[in-house]
Design a protein around this nucleic acid. Structure first.
Length: 422
RNA sequence: GCGGUACUGGUGAAGUUGGUUAACACACCGGUUUGUGGUACCGGCACGCGCGGGUUCGAGUCCCACGUACCGCCCCA
C-alpha cells in the first residue's frame, strides 16, 4: 500500500489558493442574496453534534444514518457524529438559544455555509467532505413562504448564470394525509411483496414512501398503478399545495410536479422540492438543491410547536457546473534588486510601501538574476516594478518601471507619492 | 457496501510480442559579455515508473494484495 499517512483521507479535497476565487464568490453571493435581499442571518453551528441529533431527526432507516454517518466516541465516552446535513444542527441551535423568544422577529431566518460529512463512495459530484449552503426559516406556515424559499434558491443559481435546471416539487401532506397514504401504499404493495427488490421489501416495513423513488425497473413497474400521494391529501393539505403551485406560477417558476419525489430524510412534510440540473457533467448527482417543509422538529428538541422550511445547496456540485473562475488579483509593486548588496535597502522599502500606501509588494529573497526577477514581476501580474541598485541606494532614489509599457522614471525616495503609481 | 477503468517527472504524456542509457512537449532554473520582463536560440531538469510482494536470467511492461482517483449501482447535496 502507498504511504497513506501522507495522503488526504479518501473523498476529501484541499482547496488551494488557485481555487479560492469561486469560493469567495459563493460567499459574497450568499451574503448578498440570502443576507441582504432576503434578510436571513448567518449561523454557524458545530462541526459535530451528539449522534442522536442526527439519528433521530433524519430517521434510523435513512441511508444517511444507517450507513453514511461519521460517528465516534470521544474521551468522555460521548457518542458524537460529524454533521451529515445542516438542518438538525440549526434546529438544535434555534431551540438551545431560544430564538423562538418574543424578542426575535418572526419568522426567524437563518442561512449557513458549512462542510458536511458522509461516508460514501466518492464519484462525480460526491465526496465525503462537501459543502452545503442552506437556509432555514422558523415560525411561518404560509404557503407563500414556500414559494419565496424556492425563489431564493433560484436567485442564487441565477447569480452564477445557471438556468439549465428543473424544479421538482411534491407534497407529502400533513401528518394525517401522510399516515393515510402510507397505509394505502402498503396495502397496495403487500400483494406484490415477493416481486419487490430486496431494498424495497425492507422499506415496506421501515419506510414505505421511500419505495417510490426506487430505481429498480421492476419496482417502477409495480408502482405505475400504485396510489398517488396527491390523491390522499386531505382538503387542507390539498389547498395548501395548490397555493404553493399558484405562487410559483405567479413567480414564473417552471416546475414539475413529481408525485414520486420523497427525499431521503424522514423529517419532511407538506412541500418538498429538489432542483436538478440537466447538465451532463453531473449525471447521477444531478440534484443541486433539495429541501422542504418540516414540522415537529423544533418540538422534538424541546422547543415550542414551530413550522419550518429550508433547503440545502451542494456547493461542490454547483462549482462543477460553474467551472473555475479566473483570479483577477493583481500585485502592485515588485521590487527588483540588481545584486545582494541592496537587499537591506529593498527589504526596508517593501515594508515602507506596504505601510504608507498599503501596496501589495513582492520581492525576491533568493538573489536571482534581474531577468528572473522581472519575469516574476510579470507572472505575479505586478503593475509596477521598482529597480534598486547601487546607484539608487547611493542617491536615495528609486527607479519605477510601469510593466504595461516599460516606461521608467526616477524619483527621490522622500518625494514618492501614491500618484507615481497610477 | 457492490461492479468497472486507471495510476510513469512540477504538468500533459510516449514507452512496441517483458531485454542496455525512460521519447516528445509545456513549465521551471540558468545562459546568450557584465543593471531590465513577457519573443528567439542554447543548456540543465525522473538513481525511477502509486505501494508491497511474486513470476523471470531480466518487468514501467505479466500475476496477486493494498491505496487513491475516475465511472456506474445504491443514495443523496
Amino acid at each position: 500500500m502507498s504511504d497513506k499517512l501522507f495522503q488526504k483521507p479518501k473523498g476529501t479535497a484541499d482547496l488551494l489558493p488557485a481555487v479560492q476565487a469561486i469560493w469567495d464568490k459563493i460567499n459574497r453571493a450568499a451574503q448578498e442574496i440570502f443576507g441582504r435581499r432576503y434578510r436571513f442571518g448567518r449561523i454557524d453551528t458545530p462541526l459535530f453534534e451528539n449522534y442522536e441529533i442526527f439519528a433521530r431527526t433524519s430517521g434510523d432507516s435513512s441511508d444517511v444514518v444507517s450507513k453514511e454517518m461519521y460517528d465516534f466516541y470521544d474521551k468522555g465516552n460521548r457518542h458524537l457524529a460529524l454533521r451529515p446535513e445542516g438542518t438538525a444542527g440549526v434546529v438544535r441551535a434555534y431551540v438551545e438559544n431560544k430564538l423562538y423568544g418574543p424578542e426575535y422577529e418572526k419568522p426567524v431566518n437563518l442561512y449557513y455555509l458549512e462542510s458536511m460529512f458522509r461516508y460514501e463512495r466518492p464519484q462525480a459530484g460526491r465526496t465525503r467532505e462537501f459543502h452545503q449552503l442552506g437556509v432555514e426559516s422558523f415560525g411561518s406556515d404560509s404557503p407563500f413562504l414556500d414559494a419565496q424559499i424556492i425563489q431564493m434558491a433560484i436567485d442564487f443559481f441565477q447569480e452564477f448564470n445557471l438556468d439549465n435546471f428543473i424544479v421538482k416539487i411534491n407534497s407529502l401532506g400533513d401528518e394525517e394525509s401522510r399516515t393515510n397514504y402510507r397505509s394505502a401504499l402498503v396495502d397496495y404493495l403487500k400483494q406484490f411483496e415477493d416481486r419487490l427488490s430486496n431494498d424495497s421489501k425492507n422499506r415496506l416495513k421501515s419506510n414505505p414512501l421511500r419505495i417510490l423513488d426506487s430505481k429498480d425497473p421492476k419496482d417502477q413497474e409495480l408502482l405505475i398503478d400504485a396510489p398517488k400521494i396527491l390523491d390522499y391529501l386531505n382538503q387542507e393539505s390539498k389547498d395548501r399545495f395548490k397555493k404553493v403551485t399558484k405562487a410559483l406560477d405567479d413567480f414564473d417558476i417552471s416546475y414539475e410536479i413529481d408525485n414520486k419525489l420523497v427525499r431521503g430524510l424522514d423529517y419532511y412534510n407538506n412541500t418538498i422540492f429538489e432542483i436538478e440540473t440537466r447538465d451532463p457533467k453531473l449525471k447521477s448527482s444531478a440534484t443541486v438543491c433539495g429541501g422542504g417543509r418540516y414540522s415537529g422538529m423544533v418540538e422534538e428538541f424541546g422547543g415550542p410547536e414551530t413550522p419550518a422550511i429550508g433547503f440545502g445547496i451542494g456547493l461542490e456540485r454547483l462549482i462543477t457546473l460553474v467551472g473555475q473562475i479566473e483570479d483577477q488579483d493583481h500585485n502592485d509593486v515588485y521590487i527588483v534588486q540588481t545584486d545582494k548588496s541592496v537587499n537591506e535597502f529593498a527589504n526596508l522599502l517593501a515594508k515602507r510601501l506596504r505601510e504608507k500606501f498599503h501596496f501589495g509588494v513582492l520581492l525576491d529573497y533568493t538573489d536571482r538574476s534581474m531577468k528572473s526577477q522581472l519575469k516574476s514581476a510579470d507572472r505575479t501580474k505586478s503593475r509596477y516594478s521598482i529597480v534598486i541598485g547601487e546607484e539608487e541606494v547611493k542617491n536615495k532614489k528609486v527607479t519605477i518601471k510601469k510593466m504595461a509599457d516599460g516606461s521608467q522614471k526616477k524619483i527621490l525616495l522622500d518625494k514618492l507619492t501614491i500618484g507615481d503609481f497610477s
